[in-house]
Design a protein around this nucleic acid. Structure first.
Lengths: 286, 286
DNA sequence: GTTCCGCATGAATCGATAG
DNA sequence: ACTATCGATTCATGCGGAA
């Protein structure tokens, strides 16, 4: 089976028009937050954010299959001491376009940005808004089950803290090979709260989310051979993970720098990850 | 110093009018969820929730001190496969009343309600919306500091598992005396994500939160002798915790059953509440 | 091969200063 | 007055080098 991984250079509000109706199984993206990352993107003013995004979401609604899902990673920024309401307004306006606001997952960023202010704590969570075209959408819950129970406690207690941390980080969201042979014993369905750290290792490109995040949603909402779309693919995390998992993908990127970075291929650090995962998957099958 | 703990029977939209302007330091409440708790409250239809709540929030705006804070625990329910948007609309409408939407804390319920659905995972988080009258409000961040990750890794590792458990259980949410002398060195400010288990004890009340939740916010936003208000006090958690922490409090409850429950002290540990209420009534007669 | 330690690095926010 | 820029603050994490 051949996996297609397309990267398109250009403004997604234009390039999306070239995609066919009802052709995508999962849209997964983290658009530039309002007034953030203005060194790499233009920087959209909070007051104009909804107006800027609606033409894009309209196209996304068109290209998504009726059984497909749209996951939008977003967080409102503070303006004059208040959380701005553009995300709330965006949800309301997208529903008027025809989207169903099915669920809101919570991404708890365990390593959030530091700092201290007299009237505010560090912001350590972001929204993962789930939208659908229809109440009947595809969902493969078994693909993201997690180990749990007394069994996990007693086994994991015998490992040192660094062992656990290191093995988790190596394989992304799951557990490392040391623990992998216990995995098939007991598993439970997860909740709508995700605990994941951001990856700060990569110097040149600011990865929007860790690989474990797209991996979780791709497993949950697609099968091998399905199509994944990220209209703000940035450093290419979504495309890379989709490819790793045997999903076809389309990534659109406005900024030529990121476009070239993704096209130039998987860097060596990621190659290691892929090898680790293969070994882990093979180990699980036994 | 005498601590006053008032419990008032009645509809808070009426009873709130009897409270003075700018008299409350912290409002902390978990109102009945839309249509969800038909058995215990009237059951407000999701489409009428905003309309129902706005007259109440208007009164709350009046009674809150300019330096005070309003924490609203709320979560939208699922209607026809979608998250209803009444919470989003409520935030937008409350801002029009004059409220500032300062922050949204996340309550991660570690032991959320069990169950399984074909297109949805268990809901394990709720919103804790922070509203203020003014950008300058009082906040006592030092009162809720937590041990840092570094401290936990390097120091806690050397303690045995039983030592840790024993010390934690002694002091409840805090840490034991054996470790306490390290605390002032290695403490960090928390984030806006709260990890707290729900309490199973309060089965009788519809929307009860664990004591640790009001405790955290009461410590964060008030000092001893300040006034705490819960317009939907239910089984009395807010009042009980406020009393324990030496804060004056007013609890309003519409349902006679809960009112009687708090008054009669169903739990023996809450006997002091009645005494306090009697003292309050005598105080009012004067 | 493991474990430990040091260090750079963030999708942040506020308040002061400058145009 | 109103917006743009800058410095100060702060901590979980991964990586590289050393024991």
């Amino acid at each position: 089976m051949t996996v297609s991984t397309k990267i398109i250079l250009g403004d997604c509000s234009e390039k999306l028009k070239e995609l066919g109706d009802d052709s995508i199984d999962l849209i997964l993206t983290s658009p530039p937050y309002a007034d953030q990352r203005r060194n790499t993107y233009g920087g959209i003013h909070p007051d104009q954010y909804v107006e800027w995004f609606l033409p894009i979401s309209e196209q996304l609604l068109r290209v998504l299959k009726p059984t497909g899902t749209f996951i939008l990673n977003i967080k409102e920024r503070v303006v004059k001491g208040e959380r701005h309401i553009y995300v709330l307004e965006l949800i309301i306006e997208m529903r008027k376009q025809g989207w169903l606001w099915t669920e809101e997952f919570m991404w708890h960023k365990r390593n959030c940005y530091p700092g201290r202010w007299p009237n505010r704590f560090r912001d350590s969570w972001e929204r993962l808004l789930q939208f659908n075209k229809d109440r009947k959408f595809r969902m493969f819950q078994e693909a993201v089950m997690v180990p749990t129970g007394d069994w996990a406690k007693t086994r994991l207690r015998n490992l040192s803290e660094t062992d656990k941390v290191r093995d988790e980080s190596k394989v992304g969201s799951g557990f490392g090979k040391n623990i992998s042979h216990w995995l098939d014993r007991r598993r439970a369905y997860p909740t709508n709260v995700l605990h994941m750290s951001t990856e700060c290792g990569n110097k040149n490109h600011s990865a929007a989310f860790p690989e474990a995040l797209p991996e979780w949603f791709i497993k949950l909402f697609t099968q091998e051979g399905d199509w994944v779309l990220d209209p703000f693919v940035g450093s290419g995390t979504t495309s890379r993970v989709a490819q790793k998992l045997g999903r076809n993908s389309i990534g659109i990127e406005f900024h030529p720098h990121y476009y070239e970075m993704v096209r130039s291929g998987v860097d060596k650090g990621k190659q290691y990850l892929i090898e680790k995962r293969k070994a882990y998957e093979e180990d699980r099958r036994r």
